[in-house]
């Protein structure tokens, strides 16, 4: 019987630095704010993730990723402005990609993959119009 990998404690400073770099890069690509919460969710994970998202500086322009390695839950909350370019269906696909990495015990890899996927899709479409 295969044993599921166990959450490996806190992120190391090196992993945090790597995620910071990924977030900065994603924000430059998409012009959307990213925030990652990794910890123990309190109460209903969706509601908790919603309150985390609401506490951000600009919730409408932000994407919050909440990962609870103990409850094995991942929640992504997108703001109203973000949803114009990033559909919930695309977010679901990103969550699926993250889940597969988390299941292998690769938390940083999963978060990185999810951020990159959502940043790519959240990017506003390029317009071909040339301003006079």
């Amino acid at each position: 019987m295969p044993v599921a990998p166990v959450a490996s404690g806190e992120l190391t400073s090196r992993e945090r630095a790597e995620l910071d770099r990924v977030i900065r890069s994603a924000e430059q690509i998409s012009r959307v704010e990213f925030s990652v919460f990794r910890g123990i969710s309190q109460g209903d994970p969706r509601v908790f993730a919603g309150s985390l998202h609401a506490a951000l500086a600009a919730p409408d322009r932000s994407i919050l990723i909440m990962v609870d390695p103990v409850a094995r839950v991942v929640e992504v909350v997108t703001g109203a402005e973000v949803r114009r370019t990033l559909s919930d269906r695309t977010v679901e696909m990103a969550v699926l990609a993250m889940q597969s990495e988390f299941a292998q015990g690769n938390d940083v890899g999963g978060i990185t993959r999810g951020i990159n996927l959502m940043a790519e899709h959240a990017r506003a479409p390029r317009t071909m119009h040339v301003r006079p």
């Binding site: 919603g50 506490a55 991942v74 909350v77 109203a80 679901e92």
Partner: peptide, 29 residues
């Protein structure tokens, strides 16, 4: 651990309701 979160961390969650028209997705593994 909260990357890109408010300076106050979870302390700023007090009274913060979910943003209007928020979307997203959930998952478990």
């Amino acid at each position: 651990q909260w990357l890109g979160g408010p300076k106050g961390g979870k302390a700023e969650l007090e009274g913060s309701d979910a943003a209007k028209n928020a979307g997203g997705a959930s998952g478990q593994w």
